[in-house]
Amino acid sequence: MNLRARRRSETRHTIQRQAIRLFMDRGYDATTVNDVAEAAGVSAMTVYRHFATKEDLVLYDEFDQQAAATVTELPADEPLVVRIARTLTKTYEDAIADKEFHLARLRLMIATEALRARHLDSQYATQEALVAALTGGSEDPATEFQARAAASACLGVAHIALLRWAAEDGEPDLRTLFEEAFTATFGHPL
């Protein structure tokens, strides 16, 4: 990553952390983009340059790109749900290294109606990234359908595990919750 990209990433990170902090302290609806800009020490225009919408201040992550890269690294001879489940487990574990930050994001997504609706869009984008990675540009409808069905099912299971993790203040081991949820759904450990 060059210096410019690193600075851009650091600015995005600072803005998002300040936004999450303010949303948790004041409430999502009571906090404006101008409040976030002031807390982050940037202009409102800079906030919008990094986050197109207020919802993106909570929902933005690089999960889709990481998941797509990870799923293509796994052996292609494994069943789709196994590959996707392993991908989601690894990607979520990597993504939530900062537990308190991600717990706050999840709590905001759960508690805020506008974010719940947009989170579904985010889930769809993750599904699309996984399907594209799994099909490798194949235009075979059966291959695309199978990848979409497996990705959608696995994302639903992962979502339930994350909700429980958030409800229990991040205390349970996330990998264990994922394993329990995938086993309950697919009948065997993945």
Rank of each mutant, 00 (worst) to 15 (best):
G136Y: 04
L88Q: 07
S152Q: 12
A149Q: 12
A95T: 02
G27P: 02
F23K: 05
A133R: 05
A39H: 01
A161Q: 03
A167T: 02
Q146A: 15
S43D: 13
P189V: 13
Y92A: 06
R26L: 12
A76T: 02
L190H: 12
T185M: 11
N34G: 14
G27S: 08
V58H: 12
S9A: 15
L106Y: 00
A161P: 01
L174T: 06
T87S: 14
N2I: 08
A158N: 07
P75I: 01
L115V: 02
G137R: 09
A153L: 11
L59Y: 07
E38H: 15
Q66T: 10
D56Y: 08
L74P: 11
V36K: 01
A104K: 11
I110N: 12
R26G: 08
R105E: 04
H50Q: 11
R164P: 00
V81G: 08
L115I: 03
A161I: 01
Y124D: 08
W165I: 14
H159V: 03
A69E: 15
H50C: 09
A142R: 10
H119I: 01
E179P: 05
R107E: 12
I96D: 00
V58F: 12
R86E: 09
V131N: 00
A132E: 14
R116Q: 11
A39P: 08
W165D: 08
M109K: 04
H159F: 13
H50N: 06
Q146K: 13
R4Y: 11
G156I: 10
Q16F: 13
A40D: 03
A104W: 04
Q127H: 05
N2T: 12
R86W: 14
F178R: 04
Y28T: 04
T126A: 15
P75T: 01
F23P: 13
A5Y: 02
A151C: 05
G170N: 01
L115D: 01
T72H: 05
G170V: 04
H188A: 15
T183E: 12
T185R: 15
A95S: 15
T72E: 13
T112Q: 15
W165S: 08
L3V: 14
Y28E: 13
I160N: 05
P172I: 03
L80C: 04
A67K: 00
K54C: 04
T176G: 09
D140G: 06
F178K: 06
R118P: 03
T89V: 12
Q65C: 09
Y92Q: 06
T31Y: 04
Q146F: 14
R148F: 12
T11Q: 04
L190A: 06
H119G: 09
R8L: 09
E62V: 03
M1F: 11
A97L: 10
